[in-house]
């Protein structure tokens, strides 16, 4: 069944890049996704993900209009994601009662800005679709270097500050008394979420990022009851979803991003039903 996939993998660099992108994004996704699910900040991650479209649209527009080849849309994505993360973070730290409104606004305004700039960019382009729904098969060598660098930054920070992040996620008030800079680590966590979202946008696009960020961690959470164990399993599931999603989608020529998400969703449902059955017996 997967013979064609492996033939393509041996033959074409774009398939190798796609596979590697899925694996790299999956590692960051498992680790940061576990923090997101444990701290219950899925909605914040959603806001950041959609703000990314604004950054990508602006970068894409100026790279075409001014012919700035160096201005890769992913740079725009990084800037927009981090800006959205810091804004939401500061609002939630300083004025909790307005948090959801601000997230909703950033969510929609990010999308609107992206759509405007992409619409105004001269020439026919199908970029909007690939930003929205991902196009892992279009990843270039340059993209891959950027993805690799982001991946290393995210994984390094998430693991070096593991104890602090865990304490801040579990009990902010206690962590503050112990001298942990709670505000700093909360913002740092949101910035990690932002960078991870950018990584995942290349795989599944803006719209489906939330599913890929949370489903592997949610599946892992059904098996493991510690944060560490949860992360290890979430990384395994993330990498498995992107890899198998890519394999399944290749021969029937399905959109890879959507296939990955459906695979993750079905796995989550099956595991939940399976666990429920075992418990009720």
């Amino acid at each position: 069944m997967f013979i064609e996939f492996f033939q393509a993998l041996a033959e074409y660099t774009f398939m190798q890049y796609a596979l590697l992108t899925g694996i790299l994004a999956g590692i960051a996704c498992g680790i940061v996704g576990t923090y997101v699910v444990a701290r219950r900040i899925t909605y914040i991650a959603g806001g950041i993900a959609h703000a990314v479209l604004g950054g990508m649209g602006i970068a894409f527009y100026f790279s075409v209009v001014n012919n700035w080849q160096a201005l890769h849309p992913l740079y725009g994505a990084v800037v927009a994601a981090v800006a959205a993360a810091v804004t939401i973070g500061l609002v939630s730290l300083r004025a909790r009662e307005r948090e959801d409104t601000v997230i909703g606004a950033i969510w929609a305004i990010g999308m609107a800005v992206g759509i405007l700039f992409i619409a105004q960019t001269p020439g026919y382009n199908e970029n909007l679709m690939s930003y929205l729904f991902g196009n892992i098969l279009m990843v270039s060598a340059a993209d891959l270097w950027l993805i690799g660098a982001l991946d290393i930054i995210v994984v390094f920070i998430a693991l070096v500050f593991y104890n602090q992040l865990q304490a801040v996620c579990f009990d902010e008030e206690f962590a503050r008394i112990r001298g942990v800079n709670v505000e700093f680590f909360y913002l740092l966590l949101l910035c990690l979420v932002a960078l991870t979202v950018v990584l995942l946008v290349t795989v599944v696009g803006v719209v489906m990022v939330i599913a890929l960020l949370t489903l592997p961690a949610a599946v892992a959470g059904l098996f493991s009851r510690t944060l560490r164990g949860n992360m290890i399993m979430a990384v395994i599931f993330s990498v498995a979803f992107t890899t198998f999603g890519l394999m399944i989608s290749y021969t029937p020529n399905l959109p890879a991003g959507a296939t990955i998400i459906i695979l993750a969703g079905i796995t989550y449902l099956l595991v939940m039903v399976g666990k429920g059955r075992l418990l009720s017996r």
Binding site: A38, Q166, C169, D171, R178, T226
Partner: peptide
């Protein structure tokens, strides 16, 4: 919250 007893004490 997914955390072990030992991890909580270590905080």
């Amino acid at each position: 919250f997914p955390v072990s007893v030992m991890d909580v004490v270590l905080m």
